[in-house]
């Protein structure tokens, strides 16, 4: 594609934190002269860390969906809600647009993250030069939208604080919401620990 040089070919490093362009140091634990952060060519152990966090997040995502995330008590009538049943309920109550937003934040975004990060990890390992620009864009998308998944956690927290009418009506959080919150945090760490520069390092034909 382009004949533009890459930083490591010129012996340069951009600080990952402040962006300063530096000469590549010839000794190992080097610090950025401007902000003092560790100066590294690539994120440390990117493959291993991303896989580990991704797998852990996936394991926690199962109880997050199977277990109920909140309990509604209405005059002795107990109703446990999972993520999906919450979406269905919103749809039935006549707010299909909000139902779609919650569905996107709680289901589509986490699942997209699992797929995209796994795809990036596998394709980079295989030194693929397939769909470079699309894969790079997918990474930036997943990195950008990941934190919106926290939506459902905040919904449960606010309802718990609001609906406290003793015997008449109560809302309580259930373990599912803890697993879900952890899933979101782990997927955020996973996408942060993946180094998108590796996508471009792995190309077979540098031109």
């Amino acid at each position: 594609m382009s004949a533009l040089p890459r930083a490591h070919e010129l012996g340069l490093i951009a600080c990952h934190v402040c962006g300063l362009v530096c000469r590549e140091p010839n000794f190992s634990p080097a610090a950025c002269p401007r902000c003092g952060s560790g100066l590294r060519r690539r994120k440390t152990a990117s493959f291993m860390r991303t896989w580990a966090l991704l797998i852990a997040a996936f394991i926690l995502y199962i109880p997050a969906n199977v277990l109920p995330i909140m309990r509604t008590v209405n005059v002795g009538d107990v109703d446990d809600n999972t993520i999906i049943s919450g979406v269905v309920e919103l749809w039935m109550q006549g707010s299909p647009s909000l139902a779609l937003i919650v569905f996107a934040a709680s289901i589509v975004v986490p699942v997209l993250k699992f797929f995209v990060l796994a795809l990036l990890l596998v394709s980079t390992r295989r030194d693929s030069d397939w769909a470079m620009h699309q894969r790079a864009a997918l990474y930036r998308l997943v990195d950008l939208i990941g934190y919106w998944s926290m939506l459902d956690v905040f919904v449960v927290a606010l309802l718990t604080a609001l609906v406290r009418f003793d015997v008449l009506s109560r809302v309580e959080p259930l373990p599912g919401v803890v697993f879900f919150g952890l899933t979101v945090i782990l997927t955020m760490f996973a996408s942060m620990s993946f180094d998108p520069r590796l996508l471009w390092d792995a190309r077979k034909n540098h031109d």
């Binding site: 533009l4 530096c22 000469r23 080097a30």
Partner: peptide, 24 residues
């Protein structure tokens, strides 16, 4: 010049993409 990493000489006006490491 410190013996370690320093701002690269003549690096003004040079940017490095933080996503793909391309120098531009």
């Amino acid at each position: 010049a410190p013996p370690g990493p320093g701002p690269a000489p003549g690096a003004q006006g040079i940017g490095i993409c933080e996503y793909c490491d391309t120098v531009y």
